[in-house]
């Protein structure tokens, strides 16, 4: 088994001045390469917090996270940023595309942060966008695209630099059922690469069947784990 992410005993607390609230309790987790893993659970159960920690954008109160062998919880800020830039791709619920950039420029943004010129990055992103069926829309601004098209641009942005881990936060939440299915199909394709893991946080039960593995959370703890595309036994997510 090729492990992409190894999280050990993760605790997370928020708050200050003596008023603190714990949202994750001793979470242990492994994510494997070549699979699309879904993290499911009701709103407020800590899915997004755990995703933020696993992707290095949030530091846990306690515990360690190794991504592709690199311990991101021990990295200094600059190392952490460089690690994210090279090894992790992000897909957000609200797409978070830059409104002033075209689809190709948005998709090429991770390459620009790594030092490539915007024009060259957009050229490379254009190829990825074409494979996602966005060929005719590469020069359009986000406001000229539908929600599904914007999410495809976000997918292109997440994979343009060929990261080993792609993290997706509710990628279908803002999409209709058909578009959601198309987006998930693309993510499923992306996860087929044996050198890549795709981690999707969702509570959209219409897309569970795209998963290779489903991990269920509740109240900041992992309460179930199934090695197929069905919810773990005894788990119901609304």
């Amino acid at each position: 088994m090729n492990v992409a992410v190894q999280a050990s005993n993760i605790d997370m607390e928020f708050g200050a001045n003596g008023v603190r609230s714990q949202v994750l309790f001793g979470v242990d987790l492994q994510i494997e390469m070549g699979k699309l893993t879904m993290l499911v659970g009701p709103s407020g159960c800590g899915k997004t917090t755990l995703l933020s920690i696993l992707s290095g954008t949030l530091t846990p109160t306690r515990g360690d996270v190794d991504v592709m062998g690199g311990r991101i919880t021990s990295m200094k800020d600059r190392q952490n940023v460089e690690f994210r830039r090279e090894r992790i791709g992000f897909i957000f619920q609200q797409y978070n595309l830059l409104p002033a950039l075209t689809a190709a420029e948005n998709a090429g943004a991770p390459l620009v942060t790594a030092g490539m010129k915007l024009k060259d990055a957009a050229e490379r992103a254009r190829v990825v966008l074409e494979t996602l069926g966005m060929g005719p829309h590469v020069n359009k601004l986000p406001r000229q695209l539908s929600g599904g098209q914007q999410q495809r641009v976000a997918i292109a942005r997440a994979i343009v630099h060929e990261p080993a881990l792609v993290v997706c936060d509710e990628p279908t939440a803002a999409l209709d059922a058909d578009t959601g299915r198309q987006v998930m199909a693309l993510l499923k394709d992306a996860s087929a690469d044996p050198n890549r893991a795709v981690l999707v946080v969702t509570h959209d039960n219409r897309i569970y069947h795209y998963a290779d593995r489903i991990i269920a959370m509740e109240d900041g703890r992992i309460v179930g784990d199934s090695a197929n595309n069905t919810l773990p036994e005894g788990i119901h997510v609304h």
Binding site: S55, R78, V81, E82, F92
Partner: peptide, 16 residues
């Protein structure tokens, strides 16, 4: 800020 946040998430440094 959210745009800058997105750029930071995908690997832009504070210096950039």
């Amino acid at each position: 800020l959210k745009q800058f946040g997105a750029l930071k998430a995908i690997g832009a440094t504070n210096g950039q």
